[in-house]
């Protein structure tokens, strides 16, 4: 009789039990994760968060930066219900997919590495300067202007190409980016400071 660890049938059974066991644990964790990351249920904000002001600040207890939602700050001057906000963010998300943004940029750190990470794009300190460049007077208007004609406002040799983004798509994408910037990402990106001084 061979020792256990040399026996084919022992390893066959082990393969079946280990695989099934791990799969069950993954499925249980999936239910829990889905619940905790549904919009408005904790880690991921409700869509109507786009009506509010978002910040990213250091939290001593968690020892990392976390999104902070406070006060009203309407997007394009409109207060939206949760359903309206969801429809707008969804239009933005569909535009992001239809233009292959993730094959140049990363979102939540996933995607391509040819252009900046967009997780906190809404909070990026550079938009202040971009308001001057795009001759607009709000952050959302500057972002929309940039998205509609990125090559007009290029800051780099590596230009973002024209992606035929319409004004309504641009506004929807801005809503999507604002909503995404309020997701609790366990401190990623580290050290991102929305109030960093500009050069």
């Amino acid at each position: 009789m061979q020792p256990l660890w040399q026996r084919e049938d022992f390893w066959r059974k082990a393969a079946i039990f280990v695989t099934a066991g791990m799969a069950v644990v993954l499925i249980l964790l999936t239910f829990d994760s889905m619940a905790k990351s549904s919009a408005g249920k904790g880690l991921v904000p409700a869509f109507a968060v786009i009506n509010q002001q978002i910040d990213y600040r250091f939290d001593d207890a968690r020892n990392m930066r976390v999104p902070v939602v406070e006060g009203e700050q309407l997007l394009f001057g409109k207060r939206l219900t949760e359903a309206e906000a969801e429809a707008l963010v969804s239009h933005g998300k569909k535009t992001v997919q239809a233009k292959n943004c993730m094959d140049c940029h990363t979102l939540l750190g996933n995607g391509a590495y040819f252009a900046p990470d967009l997780t906190k794009a809404w909070l990026d300190p550079q938009w202040e300067g971009m308001e001057t460049l795009t001759e607009t007077d709000t952050r959302e208007a500057a972002m929309a202007a940039f998205l509609e004609h990125p090559s007009h406002y290029a800051t780099q040799d590596r230009v973002m190409p024209e992606l035929k983004i319409t004004p309504s798509e641009a506004r929807a994408v801005v809503a999507f980016l604002k909503w995404m910037s309020a997701i609790d990402t366990n401190g990623f990106p580290a050290n991102f400071d929305p109030h960093a001084e500009e050069d």
Binding site: S33, K36, S37, L108, G109, N110, D184
Partner: peptide, 18 residues
């Protein structure tokens, strides 16, 4: 599969998961 199935979690650090 004993390591890889739950190893999936290395992609869930920063995407809004617990």
């Amino acid at each position: 599969l004993g390591s890889g199935i739950l190893g999936l979690g290395h992609h869930y650090f920063w995407i809004g998961m617990p």
